[in-house]
Amino acid sequence: MEKICVIGGNRYFGKLLVKRLRAADHQVTVINRGSTLPPAGVEHLVVDRNDEAALMAALGSCAFDVVVDQVCYTPVQAAVAARAFAGRTRRYVMTSTIEVYDPATAALPAVPPGTPVPEEIVDPAGWLVAMDLPWHDDAYVEAHYAEGKRQAEAVFARAGSFEFASVRSAHVLGGGAQEFTGRLAQYTGRITRGEEITVHAKALPTVFIRYEELADLLLWATRADFTGPVNACSDGPLDVRDLAAVIATQAGREPVYRTVQAGEEASAFSFDRHYAMSNARAKELGFAFSHTADWLPGAIAEALTTEPSPTA
């Protein structure tokens, strides 16, 4: 049994991670602002992680074997956590994102289309951190989501008081009504209603992961001893038309597409730039991924029973 702290952990794959940690007989503590109660048997510290003094007070004399941070979006949040957990844990795992590789959000080394993007393209150890940017402005953080994640990773990588690993997640699907982005339900809704999906003229593939598999990988990351970033994605990249075709088969309707003009925003999962990740490092470290084709039909079936949003 290990003592595991999960920051966040009150929804979607974070909630599932907490359940799986408990099922593995770990002693689990959840830290969040208290909007949702954790399962029975889980210690709950209700505190705003952005308030350093309150976080330190809530932690008291607590110490953990591993911390899993589900909700770190800025270098300021990372710096607060790095100070708060210094000397309290041997390992810190941060949930990051495929968006760190988006060439539209940073000057990154070019990767030829069709070549899966490896972790070293964004090295947190050398990434510039700018703490004086308006990271306390929610609108700024939302608009600079990818850069916030890159800089947060960089702060933890340089903290030096614990082992640090980041899990860069692909686009997460599945869970039906639990799916917090609702994007798959948006696609199933538009296709079943015969509404158009806006796409790029030459949409490039991206990668996905089922929410249950991501929870499994995070559980694995608490037990592993690797450091640095690791990409988390199922085998089998798909472009937006591939995804829509699978949905159409199950929905019994043909997708309706409209090609966007230059500068016009397309539907989610339609990308005009390449940054589909490689999962080779995680495989070499011992994690076995599923293929997207293994679980996507089930995720679509869940979404087909979910009330869709009006846009995709």
Rank of each mutant, 00 (worst) to 15 (best):
G176I: 02
V80L: 06
V46A: 15
G286P: 04
S169I: 05
C72A: 05
E195R: 09
R91T: 09
L128C: 05
P308C: 09
A266D: 03
E120V: 14
G148M: 14
I197G: 00
A157Q: 02
G298N: 13
L214K: 07
V93C: 02
L173M: 07
F13A: 09
E163P: 06
Q186Y: 08
E2G: 02
P103G: 15
N50A: 14
I121P: 11
Y257Q: 10
R11G: 15
V260E: 05
G182E: 10
R90E: 06
E302S: 11
P38V: 09
L37A: 15
I31M: 12
Q250F: 00
A244H: 11
A139L: 09
L304A: 05
K19N: 13
A157P: 01
R210C: 06
D65S: 05
L217K: 04
G34S: 15
P205C: 10
I31T: 09
R223A: 14
T188G: 12
C5M: 07
I121M: 11
L285A: 06
R253G: 00
M1L: 10
I7Q: 00
E153Y: 13
F164G: 06
L218S: 07
E163L: 11
V6C: 07
T292E: 04
E179L: 14
L173A: 10
A139T: 13
L173N: 09
H26P: 03
G194M: 12
Y101M: 10
K283L: 02
G228S: 05
A177Q: 11
G34A: 13
P310W: 14
V256P: 01
P113I: 14
T206D: 00
V93Y: 00
Y145L: 10
V80F: 11
E163T: 12
T95C: 06
W127C: 08
F64Y: 04
G236L: 12
D132I: 06
D102L: 10
A143V: 09
Q250D: 06
A251I: 00
L238Q: 01
Q27K: 14
G126M: 05
R158W: 12
L238E: 06
A24G: 11
S278R: 02
H136I: 07
K149P: 04
A81T: 03
R22L: 15
Y257E: 12
N10L: 04
Q27W: 04
T36Y: 15
A63Q: 02
V18W: 11
I300N: 13
A266S: 08
Q70V: 02
G8Y: 01
Y92C: 05
K202S: 04
N32L: 13
A280G: 01
D102P: 01
R11A: 12
D25S: 15
E302R: 01
A268R: 07
A301Q: 11
A170R: 02
R22T: 12
F85N: 10
T292Y: 08
Q261A: 14
R33W: 10
G9C: 03
P113V: 08
G236W: 03
E142L: 15
T29E: 12
V76Q: 03
P38L: 06
L243V: 03
R88N: 11
L243C: 06
P103S: 12
V28K: 15
H136C: 12
A152I: 10
H291G: 13
E147L: 07
S278M: 09
R88W: 08
T305W: 04
A201I: 05
V256M: 01
A139N: 12
